[in-house]
Design a protein around this nucleic acid. Structure first.
Lengths: 141, 141
DNA sequence: ATCGGTGTTACAATTTAAGTCACAAGTTAC
DNA sequence: GTAACTTGTGACTTAAATTGTAACACCGAT
């Protein structure tokens, strides 16, 4: 479990909350759907709430989307959850004594940034509504 | 490859080999530029050789690019190095008893694939020659 | 033939995500 | 008001992947 599933779990939470709106959307219930534990779910929900994507209230299990699903993009969720905000990572420890080692970081920063921009542009194109629709279609099938 | 810098190190190796062609391009020398160890460098070089990006010879430190740097893209290097071939990862363990848990994986696979395609398209646009040029410009500055 | 480098494997160390436990504080129902 | 339940957090443990280290057979040049 070294690869992170935080983003996937966060989307899972948002979709679950929206689909089962009015039903049981407690951290325990969601955790059983993710096959994880309530503590992890609450931590993610807390991050989503801080990013203004989810409305939660202490003590009461009645979470709901903070905005219409059409206006929440995958990029919003990614930004709310991902710690490093980077898909690709430059090696931070190269030799300053070597011309290549001294300059490779700046060069790669520029290149990786282009890739990051492309990925984020596509993430911005995916709405939560779209994900939920796809999910509903599969559920009804 | 969440916090891995294998890709960065692989590019470092290719750039180093090309820039110092004719000089000392032993795994030990490259390792000192990366501030890593010769074994790791040899492992990466071996992977690059298997992907036909680098020519190595057992016993002799005379590595060279297998193709002109113009024809090697960042995507080629990424494909040669990255184990999972995925920038984003679906949670593989969700509850089949829940409609959301049962279908979220397939939905996210589709969405993540779009992001992956966008990122890979940009990676394909970046050539090793471009990276080396940028590096040379910084070195000469 | 010797010396140094490669290619590869095995294993230890390190790092980060995920899981677990615990508990203060908020909310509802009675 | 209090009992029962939930959220929000922090501390700590466990697990998985990357990186580091060591060993050694094999290749090649001098």
């Amino acid at each position: 479990m070294k690869y992170s599933h935080k983003l996937s779990d966060a989307i899972h939470i948002l979709a679950f909350v929206d689909i089962f709106q009015g039903g049981d959307v407690s951290s325990t219930m969601i955790a059983s759907s993710i096959e994880s534990n309530p503590s992890l779910v609450r931590r993610l929900m807390s991050q989503l709430a801080k990013a203004d994507l989810l409305i939660t209230r202490p003590g009461v299990s009645a979470a709901s989307l903070a905005r219409p699903a059409e206006t929440i993009s995958l990029l919003d969720v990614y930004r709310a959850i991902d710690d490093s905000q980077q898909l690709l990572h430059v090696d931070p420890k190269t030799s300053m004594a070597c011309p290549v080692g001294r300059n490779i970081q700046a060069t790669l920063d520029g290149v990786y940034d282009r890739v990051q921009q492309a990925a984020e542009a596509e993430m911005a194109n995916v709405s939560l509504a779209e994900i939920i629709q796809d999910l509903q279609a599969k559920i009804n099938a």
